[in-house]
Amino acid sequence: MKREPRRPGRAGSAEPDLSLDRDLTTRILTGFIRSEVLRTGRSRVVLGLSGGIDSAVAAYLAAKALGPQGVIAALLPYRTSSPDSLRDAERVIGALGIVGERIDITPVVDGFAAAAGRVGRLRLGNVMARVRMTVLYDRSEHHHALVLGTSNKTEILLGYGTLWGDLASAINPLGDLYKTQVRELAAHLRVPASIRRKPPSADLWPSQADETDLGFSYDRVDRLLALLVDSRLSPDACVAAGFEPELVARVGRLVVRSQFKRRLPVIAKVSTRTVGWDFRYPRDWKS
């Protein structure tokens, strides 16, 4: 077994541990996809392939889990989408031999904008994300498949995604992996370098970049989140570990404020047994 050298920890210091056994993690995630899909009586997944690293890794894992014919990759460009994104998505389809479909969402989004009146950039981005979700769920019904989620743990914790849009899926193999861990897995799975090396972007408007939007790098915030969330360090301890107090406070606020995106709608309890409270069944109930 390979053993990675570890820096000896200073007394009282806190080192975030984002290391992964890539082989075993891949096995756990492909097993997850296989198990959670097959138990529903379906054998395929549909995912939106954006040309970015997250959906590429999800596609590689799904192809390993279900075989190339078990993966339907939907390319869902809007008229402003970067041509590089489409090229990279097509590269993934070609490399894996998975099924590709292209549906231009421009008429739907522009039709909505025409009907709804002035919609700013951010709201239009949300509309695009939700139109893509609508298309994916429809295609999943057509193909008798499940929608495969591609949101990573960093996005989910920070709330950096659209509720009922890109955050929506039936199963998500990446939701417990930080962005930097997705990158590590991408290298292991031999995702094309052009996809691994470009700056992360939701591509909702030209030249959008995640790290500019967020104001910090994934490398930095993932290390902080690993301490705050996984190791349950106090914010003060994170500052003592070398993170700027402003960053610690801001990330803490983002996580709290986006909690609604990680939960189903709250239901007012007026009966003896309420969904979500005391009507408790697993999602995999009787399957």
Binding site: S19, D21, L24
Partner: peptide, 11 residues
């Protein structure tokens, strides 16, 4: 339940 896999440790 597992809680991930680390280099040199496995699951």
């Amino acid at each position: 339940p597992t809680r991930g896999a680390r280099p040199g440790v496995g699951i």
